[in-house]
């Protein structure tokens, strides 16, 4: 291109200009079909979430026993379930629930985790010891067990599922934030900020948090996948939303009884979970390669 770009505003010392990351990511998308497809899928999901009422062909809750267990056809693209509810419309509306669970639980877990990690790392000593022991306790419950316990105590509702999955995300963000504070808090520029009288909160937010924005974005994307899967799993176990909510995991659970005669009832909601989780995972991996190429995939 021959167009001369406007001079870039000076960025903080050592920080690469922002556009290069976006451009690198885009280049990776063009080179790697899996990344491109997952980006497209996530964009599609976002559209579905916004336009669910327009895209859904039927009311997702409307029952009509006369048309129960129809296999997929031109009228009912994904068939109907035992109440005659249109599965395609339910899957489309279910995207809202799944993405809401994923997004808000990650946001909550991220905020709490980063807060805990920054505090522990910056103040050190007893504060650090106490907070990190607390994180260890959260990690002592294997897998989804902690989320199951939390929901069984609080009762099942959308909000409680989000809270339970948020707790599940706290440790990873806390550890990451703490690690990066420990790595940066004794660097000269932080000392300099302190010397000119910057408040602790300002030092943390302006000088330390920007360093971990990259990994935060990467982990948030990856946790979206885990949280969506976790939410569906809780619903499958009967600990998430109650029927007739069009929740994907719940739809799989309810379709189980007649799965031999009507496999489509189970197939499409499960496929939606699968593709959504896959897309977020692939996207998270691509972001990691671009933002933080030295880190190892886990």
């Amino acid at each position: 291109m021959t167009v001369t770009s406007a001079p870039r505003p000076a960025t903080a010392a050592g920080m690469p200009p922002r556009t290069s990351l976006a451009r690198k990511f885009w280049r990776r998308c063009l080179r790697n079909p899996a990344t491109f497809l997952s980006l497209m899928f996530v964009v599609l999901l976002a559209l579905v979430v916004v336009a669910a009422p327009l895209l859904g062909r039927f009311d997702p809750l409307e029952q009509d026993l006369m048309r129960a267990f129809r296999p997929p056809d031109g009228q009912h693209w994904f068939g109907t379930d035992r109440f005659g509810q249109d599965i395609y419309s339910r899957v489309v509306h279910g995207a809202r629930l799944s993405l809401a669970v994923g997004f808000f639980s990650v946001l909550m877990g991220l905020t709490a985790g980063v807060g805990i990690g920054l505090t522990a790392g910056f103040f050190g000593g007893v504060t650090d010891e106490l907070l990190m022991r607390f994180i260890d306790v959260l990690l002592a419950f294997p897998g989804i067990l902690l989320a199951i316990l939390i929901v069984s105590v609080l009762g099942s509702s959308l909000l409680n599922v989000i809270v339970a999955l948020a707790v599940f995300s706290v440790p990873i963000f806390a550890r990451m934030a703490r690690g990066s504070v420990l790595a940066t808090k004794n660097l000269e520029y932080v000392d300099a900020a302190r010397a000119v009288g910057a408040a602790t909160a300002r030092i943390l937010l302006r000088h330390i948090v920007p360093n971990i924005l990259g990994p935060i974005v990467v982990y948030a994307t990856l946790r979206m996948a885990s949280a969506i899967l976790g939410g569906a799993t809780l619903s499958f176990l009967g600990m998430g939303l109650a029927p007739p909510a069009p929740e994907w995991g719940l739809m799989v659970a309810l379709g189980r009884q007649q799965v031999q005669s009507a496999p489509h009832v189970v197939f499409f909601p499960g496929l939606s979970i699968f593709l959504t989780v896959l897309a977020f995972n692939l996207l998270g991996d691509a972001l990691r390669d671009v933002i933080d190429p030295r880190s190892k995939p886990v």
Binding site: G270, F274, L275, L278
Partner: peptide, 24 residues
């Protein structure tokens, strides 16, 4: 990519599909 697929498949769904295929 295959490993990502393995990670993303909801295990309850895969289990049910396998039951339909290889048990029913």
């Amino acid at each position: 990519v295959a490993s990502q697929v393995g990670l993303a498949v909801p295990n309850f769904w895969l289990g049910i599909l396998l039951l339909i295929g290889f048990a029913a």
